[in-house]
Computed example of a mutant assay.
Amino acid sequence: MGVSRSGYYNYFTEKNQHKKRAAHELADEAIKEIIFKKRIISEDVRKVHVKLKMTLENQYGIAYNLKTYSPHYEEIRDCMPNSKKRIRHVEWLKRQKEHRTCPNELQRNFKQGVAGKVLLTDITYLTYGNGKRAYLSTIKDAETNEILAYEVSASLSMDIALNTLRKLKRNHHHLTKDAFIHSDQGFHYTNPKFQKLVKEMGLGQSMSRRGNCWDNAPQESFFGHFKDETNLKACETLEEVKREVKSYMMYYNHYRGQWNLKKLPPAKYRQQLQKVA
Rank of each mutant, 00 (worst) to 15 (best):
M1L: 10
V3Q: 10
R5E: 09
S6K: 14
Y8S: 03
Y11I: 01
F12L: 07
Q17G: 07
K20E: 12
L26G: 06
A27Y: 14
D28Q: 11
I31C: 11
I34E: 00
F36C: 03
R39W: 02
I41S: 00
S42D: 14
E43I: 12
E43M: 09
D44P: 00
V48E: 05
V48M: 05
K51D: 13
K51W: 04
K53E: 10
M54T: 14
M54K: 13
T55S: 12
L56D: 01
L56N: 00
N58M: 13
Q59R: 15
A63G: 07
Y64G: 00
S70H: 14
Y73M: 08
R77Y: 10
C79S: 10
M80P: 00
P81D: 04
S83E: 08
K84D: 12
I87G: 00
R88E: 12
H89V: 13
V90I: 15
W92Y: 15
K94H: 08
Q96V: 07
Q96A: 06
E98L: 15
P103F: 07
N109F: 09
F110K: 03
F110R: 06
G113F: 10
V114G: 03
V114A: 12
K117N: 08
V118I: 15
L119T: 01
L120Q: 00
T121D: 02
T121Y: 01
T121R: 00
Y125L: 08
N130Q: 14
N130A: 13
N130Y: 10
G131S: 10
L136W: 00
S137C: 14
S137A: 15
D141Y: 04
I147V: 06
S155N: 15
S155V: 07
L156F: 00
S157N: 15
A161I: 01
A161V: 03
L162M: 15
T164L: 05
R170V: 05
H172F: 12
H173D: 12
A179V: 03
F180I: 06
I181P: 01
H182N: 07
H182M: 07
H182P: 02
Q185K: 11
T190W: 01
N191F: 08
K193R: 13
L197S: 00
K199M: 12
G202L: 06
S206T: 05
M207C: 00
S208L: 05
E220P: 06
S221F: 10
S221M: 08
S221E: 05
K227F: 10
E229N: 06
T230L: 05
N231K: 13
L232W: 04
C235W: 01
L238W: 02
E239H: 07
V245Q: 01
S247E: 14
Y248F: 12
Y248R: 04
M250G: 06
Y252I: 01
H254L: 05
W259Q: 15
L264G: 02
P265H: 04
Y269N: 02
R270M: 08
K275T: 14
A277W: 04
